[in-house]
Design a binder for these strands. Structure first.
Length: 583
RNA sequence: CGGGGCGUAGCCUAGUGGCUAAGGCGCCUGCUUUGGGAGCAGGAGAUCGGAGGUUCAAGUCCUCUCGCCCCGACCA
């Protein structure tokens, strides 16, 4: 490709709003262009990188026996109604009506579509195990897109789906994906950590997320350096201390003026925070049998020294979603904000973290401003579901080995879910087993955000001059900078390299050397060749790797094999860095 | 959905009631220049996001509206 013909242009200044370096360089180097909030065009450079990522994914999916296909972005709403997600997912799912008034949705994922198709294709155990995938556009009307390609509304996702006759088969395909994903991210050069995760709207039980650790990440993940336990904070377990006591003391109301927070209460009563119980009030959205939505107050109780984890609370409460409750809503259920506890409450779901359930004689709100009870005890004084709803914190004890864990920020670039039979049952995707028995197909679902992966790579691979993407995903392999005004040498070299199958971006522009060098660093192709009068007189060109400072003088006659060797070496470095990971 | 910020040429910005909206980068033409974002000369490019209003006069003030960014809520 000739720089003089490239459709996009490089920018000297970052457009306003480019808040991270990776995003800034993607814009400045002309990889992407924003069209609306969370809506981006991939310009030719960006498109080439994305295609390379897709090809890596494609190869690895094919290696697992996946069959590529393509499912439609627009789905009839019926199938989404059958699985219930038409009703349980909020505005993130865009709905519209076609010309005759039929409900339609823009697919934000394809469990419904793939299951509906599989229901027609699969009817025998002999057809499984089976796996299909596609790399396709998704639309999710996220309330707040941000950080360039990290969180967008329209994006490309690889999603694969597995079909098995039993759970054992699913586990095999799941484990195969688990390893395959490490290979994919490894081949792209992206370091990732797999963490146990919340299955969220997907349903199902087992799920992992692949996290690129970065301070700009929006997820908090918990890591035990000692034994390797990792989990998204939304589901992270940790070893809790309990404080049972032999004697359950009598509950007693005490006046505690101005103690609406746990800190104030503990100080006022002169007790440690762990001797108190904290209440969080959320409004949960539920769906009844007629698919009508209704709200119910969800009360989470955790011991005062811990915090509640909303995702855990939502899962335990089996709510579609949670939002912070307003004061009137709390009072309507017989509780008092700031002085609240489930004692005497009504019409609400009470979830009690085991930290509070298994600790005795805690101080809790008396549901009356300025008053608390002391010596409250779960089951004696109030009921509810005992579960783990506490949030893991920096230094919390590992649930596996007991050593302190730490928190990190991460960006989710991929996820894998064991769906089970949730979708096959609701969409009637059944098969006959070897005994002729009808059973629902056991499914798995596996995603990778292609654009987000590129965004993470640009966060990982840049310096103060621009991008430096790994050769496996860079838009071209070689940047040929010509400083020659007259003569056919640059054209000949460009042709020789291209003829040898090397991907070359050839800067044939009339601009000054400074402009060309700066652009070459900004775009950051892995290998840079400079052809100038200075070295051409000696019959040589200069070769430099983007990530290194040293320049090499290479005679023109040897340049093609030299570059081929450099490419092979860079590719080998990536291969060598890939570690095998198994579940 | 709550809070904050910003919309002036492809990009960055100035202009805070008064003459024909200013500058830098980029772009076009010509000449010169060519190993680190060149120089000179000439030129094109803006219904100042949109609508309404106040005023003798609005990019500037007011109202509404649309869009974008950030924080929070939310989210695979």
């Amino acid at each position: 490709m000739r720089m003089s013909k490239v459709f996009s242009r490089t920018l000297r200044q970052a457009p306003a709003g480019a808040d991270s370096k990776g995003y800034e360089y993607l814009l400045r180097a002309g990889f992407i262009k924003q069209l609306g909030a969370g809506i981006f065009t991939s310009l030719p450079f960006g498109f080439r990188s994305l295609k390379k990522i897709e090809d890596i994914i494609r190869e690895e999916m094919n290696a697992l026996g996946g069959q590529e296909m393509s499912m439609p972005v627009v789905n009839p709403a019926d199938i989404w109604k059958e699985t219930g997600r038409f009703y349980t997912i909020d505005k993130e799912l865009s709905r519209f009506k076609d010309r005759v008034g039929r409900d339609m949705v823009l697919a934000m994922t394809h469990e419904e579509a793939v299951t509906a198709i599989a229901a027609q294709e699969i009817d025998s155990y002999k057809q499984m195990p089976s796996m299909v995938y596609h790399i396709q556009t998704k639309w999710r009307d996220d309330p707040r897109p941000r950080a360039g390609l990290i969180r967008v509304r329209e994006f490309t996702m690889k999603d694969s789906y597995t079909f098995d006759q039993d759970h054992e088969g699913l586990e095999k395909q799941y484990a195969a994906h688990y390893s395959s994903y490490f290979k994919i991210f490894g081949r792209c050069g992206l370091p990732v950590t797999a963490v146990g995760s919340d299955s969220g709207m997907m349903g199902g039980k087992v799920a992992h997320e692949y996290m690129y650790l970065s301070p700009i990440g929006e997820d908090s993940i918990v890591i035990c350096d000692h034994c390797g336990y990792t989990a998204n904070r939304q589901v992270a377990k940790f070893a809790k201390d309990y404080y049972p006591e032999d004697e359950l003391k009598a509950m007693e109301e005490v006046e505690t003026p101005g103690t609406a927070t746990i800190e104030d209460l503990a100080a006022f009563l002169d007790i440690p925070k762990r001797k108190t119980a904290k209440a969080v009030f959320m409004m949960g959205t539920y769906t009844n049998e007629d698919n009508e939505e209704y709200e119910k107050l969800v009360v989470g109780i955790v011991r005062g020294d811990l915090d509640a984890e909303e995702a855990k609370l939502q899962n335990t409460a089996e709510a579609n979603s949670l939002r912070t409750a307003q004061e009137e809503e709390i009072r309507a259920c017989g509780m008092e904000p700031g002085y609240g506890s489930p004692i005497g409450s009504r019409n609400c779901v009470v979830i009690v973290d085991d930290s509070a359930a298994k600790s005795a004689n805690l101080a809790a709100g008396a549901n009356k401003p300025g008053y608390h009870y002391i010596n409250t005890n779960f089951e004696r004084d109030y009921g509810g579901i005992a579960a783990d709803i506490a949030s893991a914190y920096e230094g919390a004890a590992c649930p596996e080995c007991g050593k302190p864990m730490h928190l990190s920020r991460g960006i989710e670039v991929g996820n894998i879910f064991q769906l089970g039979t949730r979708y096959s049952e609701s969409l009637n995707c059944y098969f006959q087993d070897i005994n002729g028995k009808r059973k629902p197909v056991v499914m798995g679902s596996y995603g990778i955000g292609v654009g987000r992966l590129l965004a993470c790579l640009t966060e990982e691979y840049h310096d103060d001059k621009g991008l430096m993407l790994p050769i496996s995903v860079a838009p071209y392999q070689v940047h040929l900078v010509s400083l020659i005004k007259k003569g056919e040498e640059p054209e000949e070299l460009y042709k020789a390299l291209t003829d040898a199958g090397i991907e070359v971006l050839y800067d044939d522009r009339k601009d000054s050397p400074g402009v060309k060098f700066t652009d070459a660093e900004l775009i950051g192709l892995p290998i840079q060749i400079t052809m100038g009068k200075r070295t051409l007189e000696k019959g040589a060109v200069e070769v430099k790797l983007r990530k290194e400072e040293e320049k090499e003088l290479v005679p023109l006659g040897e340049i093609v094999p030299y570059i081929q060797k450099s490419i092979a070496k860079l590719e080998q470095e990536i291969k060598d860095s890939i570690t095998e990971e198994t579940l």
